[in-house]
């Protein structure tokens, strides 16, 4: 039996004591699974408009999304004709068309080529600032987490090891395990000069 509660702002999704368990359809979470899960039998346009109720008035919002994610000209392509980065942007656009309260991203950069990872990382951060939608991002890459997070929660074997702002965690790792994790990456806390 799962215990505890999950809420976003004032909205309760799940509460084991009040026996509330909101069906996924009403949670208003934008969900981005690891492989993006685009519907393979639908075009980019159909994917993005999938969650939209009435197809008519969506035209303007659809255009905004296509522009925001630089998907112009790809509207009639099928997912198998897209690159990894394009797939991700379609998945984001599809989730955002529903105006979710929160975005849940499961290892969004795992399936992207290392060479473009940093670029997409920056884009994600900018997007978050632009839209102001809270994002929960799951990653195994601590450097990615440190770069993206406003608040970082480190889990190990299903338990919270440490939580806080990235800087705080870097400066005061709570235990050996966290410092070990931090030790695997290079962090520049001071400005680096090169000549």
């Amino acid at each position: 039996m799962d215990e505890g509660y999950i809420r976003v702002g004032e909205r309760v999704f799940f509460d084991s004591f009040a026996t509330i368990d909101l069906p996924p359809q009403r949670r208003e979470i934008g969900y981005l699974p690891q492989n993006y899960a685009l519907f393979p039998h639908m075009t980019v346009r159909q994917n993005i408009l999938y969650g939209h109720q009435a197809p008519g008035p969506a035209a303007e919002e659809f255009h905004e999304m296509i522009t925001l994610f630089q998907l112009e000209g790809l509207e009639n392509r099928y997912p198998k004709e897209l690159s990894g980065g394009q797939k991700q942007r379609v998945a984001l656009a599809r989730a955002l068309m529903r105006k979710p309260r929160i975005l849940l991203l499961d290892e969004p950069l795992a399936a992207v080529d290392i060479s473009v990872r940093k670029m997409i990382r920056t884009e994600l951060k900018l997007l978050q600032r632009k839209l102001g939608i809270p994002m929960i991002l799951i990653t195994h890459d601590l450097s990615e987490a440190l770069a993206l997070a406003d608040k970082l929660i480190i889990y190990e074997q299903g338990r919270v090891v440490q939580e806080g702002e990235p800087m705080e965690i870097i400066k005061h790792p709570l235990n050996e395990r966290v410092s070990e994790l931090l030790g695997q990456i290079t962090i520049h806390t001071e400005p680096v000069f090169s000549f």
Binding site: P23, P24, Q25, Y31, Q34, N35, A37, Y50, R94
Partner: peptide, 14 residues
């Protein structure tokens, strides 16, 4: 793919 179904639910589809 189970993820496609989850995404569909998250997009409000019954």
């Amino acid at each position: 793919d189970e993820d496609l179904i989850r995404v569909s639910y998250s997009l409000g589809k019954s």
